Amino acid sequence: MKSFSPLPATLIEPIVRSALLEDLGRCGDLTSDAVIPDDCTATLLLRARQAGVVAGLDLVAFAFLLVEPAVDMHICRPDGSDVAAGETIAKLCGPARGLLTAERTALNYLCHLSGIATATAAIVDAVRGHKARIVCTRKTTPGLRALEKYAVRVGGGANHRFGLDDAVLIKDNHIAIAGGIRTAIERAIAAAGHMVKIEVEVDTLEQLDIALGLGVDAVLLDNMSVDDLTRAVAMVGGRAITEASGRVTEKTAPAIAATAVDLISVGWLTHSAPILDIGLDIPVDGNICTHLN
């Protein structure tokens, strides 16, 4: 079941404002200001052009609000909704210049985040019936991590750590530079506060045995075969959280989940998920433009 809360406005506003400033540059929307009369109003529809899961409407609302506060937005299909191709997501009415100026920024966010939510929902559905949760990683677009992780939650997934300060995650390079898995874990245990959890990446069952003996909180079972994952979960026996990662797709996820791992982490959800195609369209039977005076 999808469980998510809206992102705080204090987080959204500066991100959207920065994107608008990037687009508007030094002198604003030359095209709309030249072509569209300043007293022209319009009604436009946000429509899905392919089936998927909606995410990012709060950013859409902020994009239009910051450009033109008089734009009115009526949401038909809120974040988390499944939409069919051709379905209306929201209706926008107001000054036409503002609608056109904010259009691309709004769609950039909506298409990107809806794509992440859609891809997440597909993998979540693929492992339904198993206990494994689908989680994202820190492989995110710089500056957009909170938004992309939100989209994963909208799609029914869950979040791994948000940053380096969330928890200790000892990976292969840490182990190599520290001089071995035992040394790395012992140093982490000595340095971490009592509220900080420790996870360690293991590539072999021998490494897993050492990690379990030292009492880590979670183990990242990296790029293991399904057979090795099954053995690893049995070895852990509930003593730590088990996380599988490596080349996870909608097709491979069910077999991974069947090993009874607790988590399946999928980096491409945030760094490579295709967009959901959404457009801002003129209603076929509506007035394209009216005038304020």
Rank of each mutant, 00 (worst) to 15 (best):
C289N: 07
E243Y: 00
G115E: 01
M195G: 12
L11S: 14
E68Q: 15
A146H: 15
G163A: 14
I134T: 02
I89Y: 07
L44V: 15
C136D: 15
G193Q: 11
A255M: 08
D262E: 05
T204F: 11
A42K: 04
T41V: 13
L110H: 03
V226D: 15
I116H: 01
E201C: 01
R161D: 02
G215H: 06
I75H: 02
R187M: 06
V60D: 05
A106W: 00
H160T: 10
A132M: 05
L214M: 10
P14F: 06
V53I: 15
R161F: 00
L113A: 06
G86C: 04
D165V: 11
A61P: 05
G157N: 06
D58C: 01
R49E: 09
V196R: 14
H160C: 10
E243N: 04
T137H: 07
A102E: 06
A63Y: 02
L169T: 04
G246N: 04
S114L: 07
P78C: 08
A84L: 14
A178E: 00
M235E: 13
D38L: 10
A126C: 05
L24S: 09
I288E: 09
D23A: 14
H160D: 07
A192F: 03
I134N: 01
D125T: 15
A191M: 12
G238W: 06
P274H: 08
D23G: 08
G28H: 09
L263Y: 08
H74C: 13
N293I: 10
E87W: 12
V284M: 11
G180C: 09
A232H: 04
L24H: 03
A55T: 06
L280C: 12
V284P: 09
I36W: 08
A176W: 01
V54G: 09
Y109E: 03
R187I: 00
C40P: 00
G193N: 11
G52V: 01
L208G: 00
S245T: 14
L92H: 00
